[in-house]
Design a protein around this nucleic acid. Structure first.
Lengths: 154, 154
DNA sequence: TATTTTAAGGACAAAATACTCTTAAATAAA
DNA sequence: TTTATTTAAGAGTATTTTGTCCTTAAAATA
C-alpha cells in the first residue's frame, strides 16, 4: 500500500470538505458518519491536517472543520506530506539510506522516474479537480455504492 | 512505503543471487550476512520465493538457495507478486473496494495511470538488468557504503 | 451562568507487520 | 551410520499502525 489508511482517510475527508460549501464548519462526527470512518480516528487525522494549516477547526456548537484555503489551491501532495510525510516520495526502492544520484542503488534510476510520476500526479491534482470530477460523474467517495455522496448542506 | 520490507529484502536477495554464479546453491546465512538482513526473517521470505518457483532450495551441507530460472527471465513484478501480492498494483488510491472503470472513484483515472507506470517499471526490469547495472557501476546493494557487494564466489 | 456541543489530547486495545527462537527434516561427508 | 550443516515450519515476541475510549478545553446559546 503506497499510502497509509490515515492518509487515505485524510484525503477523502478533504475531498468531502472541498465538495461542501466551505464557509461553514462541518462536524467531524458528520464526516465520519457520511464517509463511514471511525470518528475518533478521523478526529486524530484531521488534527494533523489542521496543524498543517490545510484545515481549520472550531470548537463548540456550530463548530467543526473546514478547508483553510480554496480547494483549487490544495493539492493531494500537501495532504500526503502532512500525514505520511514526504519520505515515501524520496525513499529508495531497495530501502538503502542515502540512495541518490551520488550514491545510487541499481534500481535508483528506474524508481526515481516512476516516483516522479507519482509526485507529479499528487502535485497536479487539486481537491477542486476531484470534487468537480466527482460531481460531474456522480462518483462515489464511500464504500457502499451510494453515488449521492455529496454533503447534505449543498 | 510502496513495498513491504519483506518484499524489499526478497528483491535484494534475488539480485544477490542473480549476481552470483547461479549453478551453485548459496546458504541463506551467507546472504543474510552479506546483505545485513536478519537470517531467520530472510529465511521466511525466501521460502515464499521458492514456493513461487522463483528460487529453489536444498537442505544440508552445500545446500542453500539459487534462482530457478535465468536472471533475465525473472522480473521484479514476480517477486512483488509472490511476497506483497498484486493487490498493490490494482488497489484503489482511496481504498474503495471495487474501484474500476465501471465504478470509479474521483481519483481513479489519475491513479490508474501512475499505477501502470509502476507496474511497467516492475515488469520491464529483470534481475539481470539490475545485476549488470550494479556490476558496471560498482553500485551498492547493502546499507554501508561498501561498493564491493558482489558475492565472494565470483 | 449553566448547559450543550464540539475539537484536543492522552491512555489504552486490537490488528498488522516485522522479527526471533526452537525443533524437525533433509542431505553431505566423515 | 553418525555427525555436522542447512533449509522448513511453526510458535512466539516486538514494534508499528489502526482504532477506541475517556477526560479536558473551548465556544455557542439558552
Amino acid at each position: 500500500m503506497l499510502l497509509s489508511k490515515a492518509c487515505i482517510y485524510g484525503m477523502r475527508a478533504a475531498l468531502y470538505l472541498a465538495s461542501s460549501s466551505n464557509d461553514r464548519f462541518i462536524a467531524i462526527s458528520q464526516i465520519s458518519e457520511d464517509l463511514d470512518i471511525s470518528r475518533h480516528f478521523l478526529t486524530k487525522i484531521l488534527q494533523q491536517l489542521t496543524k498543517a494549516d490545510i484545515m481549520e477547526s472550531m470548537k463548540g456548537p456550530k463548530g467543526g472543520v473546514r478547508l483553510k484555503g480554496s480547494g483549487d489551491e490544495i493539492t493531494l501532495v500537501e495532504i500526503v506530506a502532512a500525514i505520511d510525510g514526504m519520505d515515501i516520495l524520496t525513499e529508495c526502492a531497495l530501502g538503502l539510506p542515502g540512495c541518490g544520484t551520488a550514491k545510487p542503488c541499481p534500481l535508483h534510476d528506474q524508481w526515481a522516474d516512476t516516483r516522479d510520476e507519482i509526485r507529479k500526479m499528487l502535485e497536479d491534482t487539486t481537491l477542486t479537480d476531484l470534487s468537480r470530477k466527482g460531481k460531474e460523474g456522480n462518483l462515489r467517495i464511500t464504500e457502499d455504492g451510494s453515488f449521492d455522496w455529496l454533503p447534505k448542506n449543498n
